[in-house]
């Protein structure tokens, strides 16, 4: 039975720590700066100068989110348990009347809120700057993008927790997190293309293979939120749009949420099995 009071105490501690976490601050500042920069440059790409509207900015932000948000979630998650394990604080924490699941959830909720706050600052300041310049059209696409970015951040964090529960040292956890990030970000598309060529996958199989990568889920969801069809993603995109239609977005959201829940459950199992060492 989970004790929500314990989870709250641990969540508050995690939020307190996040304020002093240099990695976290670096990510928050970098994301905000780049988001503002992209909003500015999106319009200059169209031959004008100044800040673009929400629609064009959303399209520009997809690649930024795909690069930075998983990196934030994976590394912060990877350091969560492994960092405390290495410092020795995990041993003393777990000697208190709390369960492994409570500790894990408390830390997870705290870090999720911290990540959401960082993304909120980045998206919020960019939106504020766009609104100041008179842009208000297509704000709904911007909000959809922000919503999916939040889910992607939490899913990446969950994967980071899984790494953290499995290893002893913070440095190993960070190394594995960076490797997974590279795998998901850079080798996701290439791997998919290669697999499709070698195994001669049809469009349905290609689409299903894409759903294995949470970043692809985000990309498809974000693009389908911005455009009325998915032709930009090729035959697999067209297939997905024709097959699932308006159910595609809820389906992608559900699959992304599974990427939040399943790694977290596995992390809890591993943490219980491994103990504090």
């Amino acid at each position: 039975m989970l004790d929500f009071e314990n989870i709250l105490v641990l969540t508050q501690k995690e939020l307190y720590d996040a304020r002093r976490n240099r990695w976290f601050m670096l990510y928050a500042v970098a994301f905000t700066g780049l988001a503002l920069g992209l909003a500015y440059m999106a319009l200059s790409g169209a031959g004008n100068y100044g800040l673009a509207g929400f629609g064009r900015t959303s399209a520009s932000l997809i690649n930024l989110v795909l690069l930075i948000v998983p990196l934030m979630g994976l590394t912060l998650g990877a350091l969560s348990l492994a960092g405390e394990r290495e410092k020795g604080t995990l041993m003393y924490l777990m000697a208190q009347p709390i369960s492994q699941a409570e500790l894990l959830l408390g830390k997870f909720v705290g870090l999720s809120l911290a990540l959401i706050a960082a993304l909120g600052i980045g998206f919020g300041l960019t939106a504020f700057a766009i609104a100041l310049n008179g842009g208000s059209a297509e704000i709904d696409t911007y909000l959809i993008l922000m919503g999916f970015a939040v889910v992607l951040a939490v899913a990446s964090l969950s994967l980071g927790f899984l790494i953290s529960a499995a290893v002893q040292r913070g440095s190993t956890a960070i190394g594995l997190a960076l490797f997974l990030w590279l795998l998901l970000v850079f080798f996701g598309d290439l791997g998919l293309m290669g697999t499709a060529l070698v195994l001669q996958l049809d469009v349905q199989q290609l689409f299903l293979a894409a759903l294995v990568n949470p970043l692809q889920l985000f990309k498809i969801a974000a693009i389908s939120g911005i455009r009325s069809n998915l032709e930009v993603l090729g035959p697999a995109g067209v297939y997905a749009f024709r097959t699932y239609g308006s159910a595609l977005l809820p389906l992608l959201l559900g699959l992304l949420l599974l990427w939040v829940i399943i790694p977290l459950l596995l992390a809890t199992y591993l943490f219980k099995k491994r103990g504090v060492l």
Binding site: K87, M91, Y92, P97, S99
Partner: peptide
């Protein structure tokens, strides 16, 4: 374990508290 730890005061060998 949680119920048992409610009744235990523990002094560890390595004194690793949160430094901040």
């Amino acid at each position: 374990g949680k119920q048992v730890r409610q009744t235990v005061g523990f002094v560890p060998q390595e004194l690793n508290f949160h430094d901040d």
